[in-house]
Amino acid sequence: MNYNVSEKYNCVIIELKGNVMGGPDAEIFRDELHKLIEKGKKKVVVDLGKVKFMNSSGLGILIGGLTTMKNADGELVICQADKKIESLLMVTQLIKVFDHYRTLEEAIAHFDK
């Protein structure tokens, strides 16, 4: 898993790329979120638009990220999941846990409420 971190309109965008399959990536993602929290950045969008594959451990990374942000009084939303990842979220019922948006712009707009 590769990723880019950027800021736009008062929120942080973490763009994941490639295969999201857990392992050492889970620790890297968690550490990145803790760095953001330390800087007071608590509005996070995880962009899944360039993720090719995600397994259950990859879902665990997202769940861990959601929990980390909630525990810090922050928020994490996801966007641009392709049909395969969206169906994985539906089968696992995680579609009800995450705020999911079709586009990055919609996800960013979520924080303008």
Score class of each variant (00 low, 15 high):
102 R>Y: 03
98 F>G: 08
9 Y>Q: 15
94 L>H: 09
80 Q>W: 06
97 V>G: 08
96 K>V: 09
10 N>G: 14
89 L>Y: 01
29 F>M: 11
96 K>M: 13
110 H>S: 15
75 E>A: 10
14 I>H: 01
85 I>M: 08
3 Y>P: 03
107 A>P: 07
103 T>G: 08
7 E>N: 11
84 K>Y: 09
26 A>N: 12
22 G>M: 02
1 M>A: 03
74 G>W: 09
60 G>P: 03
96 K>Q: 14
75 E>S: 13
65 G>T: 05
55 N>Q: 07
109 A>E: 15
45 V>N: 06
17 K>H: 02
67 T>A: 12
48 L>I: 03
25 D>M: 15
18 G>E: 10
47 D>K: 03
103 T>F: 06
37 I>H: 01
40 G>T: 05
84 K>S: 13
21 M>R: 14
81 A>K: 11
41 K>S: 04
39 K>N: 10
24 P>F: 14
64 G>D: 03
91 V>I: 15
109 A>F: 12
34 H>R: 14
108 I>G: 07
7 E>R: 10
72 A>E: 09
61 I>R: 09
100 H>T: 13
36 L>A: 07
103 T>R: 09
68 T>P: 02
1 M>H: 08
57 S>Y: 02
20 V>P: 06
2 N>T: 04
63 I>N: 05
20 V>F: 04
111 F>A: 06
72 A>N: 13
49 G>Y: 00
48 L>K: 08
106 E>I: 11
12 V>T: 15
44 V>G: 07
88 L>Y: 09
88 L>N: 06
56 S>F: 00
65 G>L: 08
25 D>N: 13
44 V>D: 11
97 V>K: 06
77 V>W: 00
32 E>W: 00
91 V>Q: 06
53 F>H: 11
56 S>P: 06
113 K>F: 12
40 G>W: 06
9 Y>C: 02
29 F>T: 05
33 L>V: 00
60 G>Y: 06
59 L>S: 03
94 L>E: 05
23 G>S: 13
69 M>S: 02
88 L>T: 08
21 M>A: 13
89 L>G: 01
28 I>G: 06
79 C>R: 01
74 G>Y: 00
47 D>P: 01
2 N>I: 07
54 M>L: 11
26 A>P: 01
46 V>M: 04
6 S>E: 15
58 G>T: 10
47 D>T: 09
85 I>F: 02
100 H>F: 11
105 E>F: 08
105 E>R: 14
108 I>R: 11
2 N>P: 05
1 M>R: 00
79 C>F: 03
69 M>P: 06
64 G>T: 09
